[in-house]
């Protein structure tokens, strides 16, 4: 494994240093939430959480736990900064994004603290690239207050069962309607577009469904334009957990296995369309 042998830096001055043998383990998971230019990063002892939000209705979180990194040192209780995610991804994939047969790109990422840039050292085949990305004032992120005790319905299914459905979503429909119910139709995804409607029904005993815990029939509509970006996470994941709480809020948790077989999670929260949920409740 190639590794950065000579970072010309003194680790002492950084509040956050972490290194990865394979930068794709970070870049792939960040791609799953890359639907806006800017992201907030939170680092704690447990690892790194990157958050992207849209329209105050959707939040996506990528969790890269400390164990994924070969080295993860943090000198403060928590480190927070905002960064241009597009630029960060461009830098991480500066030696090419595809999983080629060659040696992986090694990464060392350092942050000196508030007001300093995020410094990336990327090395592939003896070539080292140093990237300094300006960090921005951290912004407050949304608190969806999605609490597992309020969850009414939960379905865990293999991602392949949803992949086609999301890839083929009729984007002329304003919303995606999700029905979760202990009775028929159990789990139904519907769109109502220009050409007509489309319904996708999953029986609860399907091989694709690993867990089916629905206690109450819920019909909620979610803006399709907000949910569509989650297709990226879906494409990378092997399993997905779909949960709705008593307010109709939707949580999609994707289990993603990286190239080294480690498990990471990406989570999407989405608010329901208000009118329908009110009528429904």
């Amino acid at each position: 494994m190639p590794f950065l042998t000579q970072p010309e830096v003194d680790d002492e001055q950084y509040v956050l240093t972490c290194s990865l043998d394979n930068a794709r383990n970070l870049s792939n998971i960040l791609k799953a939430i890359h639907f806006k230019d800017h992201a907030s990063c939170f680092a704690t002892n447990n690892g790194l959480k990157v958050t992207v939000e849209n329209a105050k209705c959707l939040q996506a979180n990528a969790f890269i736990q400390a164990g994924i990194f070969q080295e993860f040192n943090i000198r403060e209780e928590s480190v927070v900064f905002r960064i241009n995610l597009t630029v960060l991804l461009d830098c991480l994939t500066i030696f090419g994004a595809s999983a080629g047969p060659g040696t992986p790109t090694a990464l060392k990422m350092c942050y000196q603290g508030y007001g300093h840039p995020l410094v990336l050292f990327l090395e592939e085949g003896g070539v080292v690239t140093v990237c300094k990305i300006h960090t921005q004032e951290p912004e407050e992120t949304l608190d969806f207050d999605f609490c597992s005790t309020n969850v009414l319905n939960k379905i865990i299914l293999q991602s392949e069962g949803l992949r086609e459905a999301f890839a083929e979503l009729d984007m002329t429909s304003d919303f995606l309607q999700i029905i979760m119910s202990p009775d028929k139709p159990y789990f139904r995804l519907s769109t109502f577009g220009n050409a007509g409607s489309a319904h996708l029904d999953y029986p609860k005993d399907s091989d694709l469904i690993e867990a089916f815990h629905c206690t109450q029939t819920q019909t909620n509509r979610y803006k399709i334009s907000l949910l569509k970006p989650s297709t990226k996470a879906l494409a990378l994941s092997c399993k997905v957990s779909i949960r709705t709480d008593n307010r109709g809020f939707l949580s999609l948790q994707y289990m993603i296995r990286n190239e080294d077989g480690q498990i990471c999670f990406v989570e999407y929260y989405c608010c329901p369309d208000e009118e329908v949920s009110e009528a429904d409740v």
């Binding site: 050409a195 007509g196 319904h199 996708l200 029904d201 999953y202 029986p203 694709l208």
Partner: peptide, 20 residues
């Protein structure tokens, strides 16, 4: 005034398109 196209998948999924 609709034509229905129903696809029954082996894994149990049913896809129904109702097209005007």
């Amino acid at each position: 005034g609709y034509m229905n196209f129903q696809l029954f998948y082996r894994n149990g999924i049913t896809k129904t398109h109702q097209l005007a």
